[in-house]
Write a protein that binds this DNA or RNA. Structure first.
Lengths: 227, 227
DNA sequence: CCTTGAATAAGACACCCGACTTAGCTGGTC
DNA sequence: GACCAGCTAAGTCGGGTGTCTTATTCAAGG
């Protein structure tokens, strides 16, 4: 039998604390292993067996037992990072006021992720994982749904709309998509360079965020060539 | 025995025109099938057997016969599109002069691809294929090597360097990478939307190019926040 | 002490894959 | 006409994978 999605099984009263704790530990181990393997090799070529083995599980179907489907596994990885990122964004939003510039608002878009990546230390895999999930045709929908579910993200978008020049609806949508792509793939590229020991454009995640904010500000403020 | 990479086998004098032509036809069929399957499902989950079957080949190892390795298959797909794109870029470069603006040079970066995609008609898969190859860890190197081998690309970069404000070396590299990411993934996103019948930011590839050029110009002209 | 149920271990089964081998077909060469 | 080389068809084989089934461990409760 598989566990119902979402939380660990503690329905009724039968589940003991020790058991659920052990389960939670292996869940974490599986999530960590899966995130690493996905980032390194991509999603599809990594089998559930390999993930389980990398997580120290001898059971063939350990992954299937704790997470029903592949999609739920990905969602669980996203959720594990979403919480701290949301917390950072909420804190940054609280520091804004009516005198804040466009830079400050866009920084709320970028820095929660880069700070989180910096906090993860070296090596990290989350940025590359995000890039993989962003491309995988079957997972894009999960990505955007997960992003849309973020309450702080909505606040940032609202704030941006008031500061930005009036733009046609389709240009607004286009540049939003571009901003997302820049953030995800630039972070992934830097993380990859860090992992391989190659050269990086910026010495720190903080500097990377600054470069990204500059670029995205320019992207939004550039004039629209009429069709 | 496998064919040596590159062209079809016509060493010595034994190869007849009819045979090589038949071989070229199945090569084309395999390339077309592979490009479509890769774009739809990603690289790794698609097996050589499936590609061969989709190309109408009954042989298990048809792909392995015509293309030695997986990488060479990808390179062959890239090369098939590279030629017409190069041709377009060369023609655009010939139309530039000393009065050309930054917009015009950056258009030489974007429009050869978008025009090519428009020329492919509907449905096309090349943009999504590029995005997949850009992410696949094992294929990134092939991508950049292939791009660096383009002579017209070098001319564009040279032209841009003269028009752009003086930028620190690392910022220059960063924004170049961002430009590439924007082009590839924005085109992939539009192609995906076209394929799924969803809404698109722009009605045509031409308009998409204009939006991309605007964004990339803004990206390059935005001031650099000092560290 | 024995049972209960969750979590894991260990294995069985059918399936698909890549690599390899063999055979058949076709069109040119001598 | 015999021959040959390139291309394709068809099949074999070992290995990895997902799913399912059974056995084992372990803590809590009667």
């Amino acid at each position: 039998m598989t566990i119902e999605s979402g939380d660990t099984a503690q329905d009724g009263s039968a589940a003991s604390a020790a058991v659920t704790e052990r389960s939670a530990e292996t869940r974490e181990a599986i999530l960590t292993a899966a995130e690493r393997l996905f980032a390194e090799r991509g999603m599809s070529p990594v089998s559930n067996r390999q993930i389980g083995a990398a997580a120290g599980q001898a059971n063939n179907s350990a992954v299937g037992y704790h997470f029903g489907s592949r999609t739920e596994l990905v969602v669980a990885i996203l959720r594990r990072h979403a919480a701290p990122i949301e917390r950072r964004r909420a804190a940054m939003l609280a520091g804004l006021d009516t005198t804040s510039q466009l830079h400050d608002w866009i920084r709320c878009l970028v820095q929660p992720l880069t700070d989180h990546l910096a906090d993860l230390g070296h090596p990290s895999w989350y940025a590359r994982f995000l890039a993989q999930a962003d491309i995988e045709p079957a997972l894009r929908r999960v990505m955007v749904d997960n992003a849309a579910a973020s309450p702080t993200m909505g606040q940032v978008v609202d704030g941006l709309c008031q500061l930005l020049p009036a733009l046609p609806e389709h240009v607004h949508a286009e540049r939003g998509a571009m901003s997302r792509q820049l953030i995800v793939h630039t972070c992934a590229e830097r993380e990859r360079a860090l992992h391989e020991g190659g050269p990086t454009a910026h010495p720190t995640w903080q500097a990377t965020a600054t470069g990204l904010v500059d670029a995205i500000v320019g992207l939004w403020l550039t004039p629209v060539t009429p069709a």
